[in-house]
Simulated scan of single mutants.
Amino acid sequence: MQRHGYLAAATLLGLAVAIGGCARDPQKRSVSELAVSGTKSLLRTDADMQTVLNKLASLDGKAIEKTTAPEARQQPTVADAVKAVLSDEKRSADPQSLVPGVSSRDVTIPGANGNLPATVYTPAGPGPHPVVLYFHGGGWVIADRSVYDAGARGLAKQADAVVVSVDYRRAPEHRFPAAHDDALATYRWLTTHAQSLQGDPKRLALAGESAGGNLAVATAIAARDAGLTAPRHILAVYPVAQPDTHTASYDKYADAMPLNRPMMLWFVQQISRTPNDVQDPRINLVKANLRGLAPVTLVNAEIDPLRDDGAQLEQALREAGVSVERRLYDGVTHEFFGTAAVVKKAEQAQAYAGQRLKADLDKQ
């Protein structure tokens, strides 16, 4: 094990001792669970990614799968851990300092059942700019656009595009297909209102992370079927693409952090009306009709139950005749994409994703 592994092990051991010194909240992971997960993590994770994971563990959040949805939304996030790491390093966590040249403003845009809050990220320079509609992650249940600010803001910089990050309705208050309906409604609106955002309605793209990566692909399919202006590119970062939680990566990383199998099963329980919902092609993308879609970029993390979802989706897209490129980043975990301020491979992934978007969005 490298030196950083020993240092991280000491950190985790100290954390476990401190936590174990008092009665544990039953909604939190046990000391043994933390120790097993932490030890496995040390053996495979990059140093800067491990720093973020250690910081996240020190924030001592409850296990998502042991909480209610409202409680889950209050738990520490990877974004919180990044801010804490920046504080430790005496660096500013101000988004505009971390991603200069991108301004942001909050707006509301129509969803399928009322207006939705959204943030518009605008790069420097005169418009009209190409426009990327971006969907945040969180299993369709937790998180919001502010938690995923760094990924959306980074894409605006790297793709030189307006990025519109929207807060779709979340489960269990609004179960499937509410989020998918909102995603299509916001895209439909963008095809006729992009100019109001200094955007070009002829140069659109879809993007998202995790559950949002699923929404990006599902929305492209729905837009095709509805006869809407087709997006020029689709970016899906570690998307949910199929319902089987016993793929090789699910089995290998069943207890990984910050995403694991129990959490995914909890998300499914929150969003589903019936067990058949997860077989719907809007969730089970590998079984959907993928023909005729725009070029797709898939980004996956090695240490992630959803790693093989990306591989399966790549294969399904190829079989459907869709141009697709997938890049797998080793040594990093689910949620790494938005950690570019402190994780080098996230910086590389954002640059790669931006280049892929820009190549198609800049075509005349």
Rank of each mutant, 00 (worst) to 15 (best):
A220W: 07
T11E: 15
H334G: 00
A226Y: 06
E302Y: 01
R73C: 11
T67R: 00
R145W: 01
H334R: 00
A248M: 03
S210H: 02
G114V: 04
A349M: 06
D182E: 13
L328C: 14
T77I: 01
R29D: 09
T67Q: 13
N300E: 14
L235G: 01
Q355G: 02
L53D: 08
P100F: 14
Y329W: 12
V296H: 05
D25G: 09
A18R: 15
L155C: 12
T77D: 02
R169C: 09
V299T: 11
G213W: 08
S210L: 00
S37A: 15
G5T: 11
L357E: 07
T108I: 04
A311R: 15
L265M: 10
L133Q: 04
T186D: 10
E173N: 10
Y352W: 14
S146T: 12
Y352R: 11
D182W: 08
P117G: 01
A93K: 04
S92W: 08
D362W: 11
I64Q: 09
D149N: 15
I64E: 09
L290W: 09
L206K: 07
L235M: 05
T274G: 05
G292C: 03
L59S: 06
P239V: 06
P295Y: 14
F267G: 12
A159R: 15
A220P: 00
V268R: 10
R318A: 08
P258A: 03
A124M: 12
D149S: 06
A171F: 10
I109H: 13
V268F: 12
A211D: 04
V162S: 05
V31K: 01
A218Q: 14
R24S: 02
H4T: 00
T245I: 03
M1C: 07
I303Q: 11
V237H: 03
S104H: 07
Y238T: 01
Q158R: 13
A211W: 03
G137L: 02
K363F: 11
K83N: 15
